[in-house]
Write a protein that binds this DNA or RNA. Structure first.
Length: 605
RNA sequence: GGGGCGGUAGCUCAGCUGGUCAGAGCAGCGGACUCAUAAUCCGUGGGUCGCGGGUUCGAGCCCCGCCCGCCCUACCA
């Protein structure tokens, strides 16, 4: 902890086919931000990157349905998602998108490197295409009668009635879910990533992570090694990154498969970030220094890409694997230090489902409640190691009893008293054993909470931080400074000094979780300047969609180095003027829970 | 079908490599206090740890079988 580390915080790329719901941000968003903020406060060099994932069939299909181009659709949802993530206070160094010229170039470079080293080969496969467009028709978009049970709405990949896995070519009377036409099964040539060539190196690497990663991620990944198959990296589609090979690059209907380019985003975003800082090689400190660390945050549905496929791509590009060959022109690239996957959030007992509108969108949520209230709930009750259920009643309860009653009220009662009785932060007189003990505990909490956060145990970290809040409330009850006011004013001043110090420490401990409210407390305690810098939206310029003209788009970034926040107890300064505080959080009427559930029921109808 | 994860007090969840591990918070009940967004503090009842076997001196924690939920199964990021 003493030396400065380079820590890449790689956050899953939200797919730009709609607004994101609170399940999404509880998986990748809030935990990664808590981690990044904590590491920055600890003095480390953090690079936190992500962006919207905008290619692929789902975007294309949705765009067709709405009568817009995929690019227009991606633009729209990129914008929505950027606004939501900024509103949540997620401190990306760069949140960009996969449709930039920079991203195209880096994705193609990865492809080329893998190809040159012999890890990508072509294979002719039988695939369904839409006869009217010539595009790949994914299995899930094909419907027909199940050859096994006769169910007439079986999907191409699986029959929902009998549960059997299917091959779309076996469906009786297959039809496209997109437009009803009969799909055509044609021979089509695709590039494949030779995953089996990495089985051994992946196994060695994964095994070395034993005891470090969350066990479910590790077990799951190791198990996948038993049956690695080559995986297609191209599709018949014109919405995506062109294939950078002679004879293929101008094929309008053959593109890199969306997963391939999306996962390269972690690297391309780092490169883009470096260019923006004016030091184009700056990204190398996080990707090529052997001491640098990288943490990837995502939901459990993405483990295979982050613990298996992306590492294989990095190895292949770097010249590690069954076949020899050197590193590509960027040089060898670091493998993930840790893949931090969270489980899923359900919603009042049901799965989130955008199509059935069983969802609470980030935007709707933040219109009515604060970002910190949501952040608090996600960390305190979110799906860190197992699926958890979001209920409005529990949200209201946590907000009212924990945020408002415990923390908000501690801030309020302490500063109120100090402001009313003294008007400034008082000097401490002689400290009693009780004073010293509670101050020691508070200081010790930095190591305890920090240990949890460094190991991505956010729930435990928050609990530990909130314990100091409870201790401070107890301290006030025990010492009763309001009663000392008449009997022993000097002692009262000491008690309030100690209490204010506890509040200040708790504010620091809670900063990674609740940055906006910690900033408020900083100000209330007479602090000036910016305690913990929040992200902002900024214009960037690049070519978009791979075609010529440079365009302006918006990115999330921030000058986080300007933050004063450090992971340590800082003595409060006696004499600092204090004024009556304003409430830190809003208490919610319990009726809110019923209203929100009703709103959800109506949406479902 | 195969694989992964989970099923612990009324509710939401902790319990890492088997031996105070039967816990926390909330809700309930009783009390204290009044500085504070009626907030806070103290005390207290409550569980056959999904079901059935097994290993062990000892098992929520290990093994086997079953039931239920969720996720993945590589063409819904």
């Amino acid at each position: 902890m003493s030396s400065k580390r380079h820590i890449l915080t790689a956050v899953a790329w939200p797919y730009a086919n709609g607004p994101r719901h609170i399940g999404h941000v509880s998986g990748f968003g809030v935990p990664s931000d808590v981690f990044a903020r904590f590491q920055r406060m600890s003095g480390h060099d953090v690079l936190m990157v992500s962006g919207t994932d905008e290619h692929g069939t789902p975007v294309q299909v949705l765009a067709d349905q709405e009568g817009v181009t995929p690019r227009q659709l991606a633009d729209r949802y990129n914008q929505v998602i950027v606004e939501d993530l900024v509103a949540l206070g997620l401190s990306y160094d760069l949140f960009t998108r996969t449709t930039t010229g920079n991203h195209y170039a880096v994705a193609q470079e990865l492809f080329t490197g893998l190809y040159d080293n012999g890890y990508i080969f072509t294979r002719t496969t039988k695939g369904a295409i839409s006869p009217s467009t010539g595009r790949t028709l994914p299995d899930r978009y094909i419907e027909g009668t199940c050859p096994i049970c006769g169910y007439d709405s079986a999907r191409g990949d699986q029959c929902d009635n009998c549960g059997n896995q299917l091959d779309p070519i076996d469906l009786i009377e297959p039809r496209s879910k997109v437009n009803g036409e009969v799909p055509e099964f044609v021979d089509t040539e695709h590039f494949m990533l030779d995953l089996p060539a990495f089985a051994e190196v992946l196994g060695t690497w994964l095994t070395s992570k034993s005891g470090q990663w969350r066990p479910n991620v590790l077990k799951f990944s190791l198990n996948l090694l038993h049956d690695l198959q080559p995986r297609a990296v191209t599709r018949d589609l014109n919405w995506g990154v062109p294939i950078p090979l002679e004879g293929w690059s101008d094929n309008a209907n053959k593109r890199l498969y969306v997963w391939f380019d999306a996962v390269v985003g972690y690297l391309s975003a780092a490169v883009e970030w470096a260019k923006r800082t004016g030091d184009p090689d700056a990204w190398r400190r996080w990707w090529q220094d052997p001491e640098a660390e990288s943490y990837y945050f995502m939901g459990k549905d993405n483990i295979v890409f982050h613990a298996e496929i992306w590492p294989a791509m990095l190895m292949g590009y770097s010249g590690i694997g069954d076949r020899d060959g050197g590193a590509g022109s960027l040089g060898a690239l670091n493998l993930p230090t840790e893949v931090v996957s969270s489980e899923f959030l359900t919603m009042e007992g049901r799965k989130f489902s955008s199509s059935r509108r069983v969802a609470i969108y980030v935007r709707d949520f933040l219109e009515r409640y604060s970002a910190d209230a949501l952040r608090y709930y996600i960390i305190a009750a979110g799906p860190e190691t197992q699926d958890t259920d979001f209920t409005w009643a529990e949200f209201v309860r946590r907000n009212n009893d924990e945020l408002v009653a415990a923390w908000g009220n501690l801030v309020n009662r302490t500063i109120s008293m100090a402001a009313k009785y003294i008007g400034e932060i008082p000097e401490a007189g002689d400290l009693t054993d009780d004073d010293r003990r509670v101050l020691d505990h508070s200081r010790a909490a930095f190591a305890a909470v920090g240990e949890h956060l460094d190991r991505s145990r956010f729930k435990a970290g928050l609990q530990e931080a909130m314990r100091t809040v409870a201790e401070a409330n107890k301290y006030l009850s025990d010492q009763a400074p309001w009663a000392l006011r008449k009997t022993d004013p000097d002692r009262m001043r000491t008690v309030l000094h100690v209490a204010l110090q506890l509040v200040d420490d708790a504010k620091t401990l809670l900063t990674p979780f609740l940055p906006a409210s910690s900033n408020k407390v900083h100000t209330m305690l007479g602090g000036t300047g910016m305690w913990s810098v929040m992200p902002h939206v900024e214009d960037a310029v690049d070519t978009i969609g791979g075609d010529g003209e440079p365009t302006t788009y918006q990115v999330i970034t921030g000058d986080y180095a300007a933050s004063q926040a450090r992971w340590e107890s800082v003595p409060v300064r006696p004499g600092t003027p204090l004024s009556a505080p304003t409430p830190l959080f809003t208490k919610l009427d319990p009726a809110v829970a019923d209203e929100e559930v009703a709103r959800l029921e109506n949406a479902v109808k």
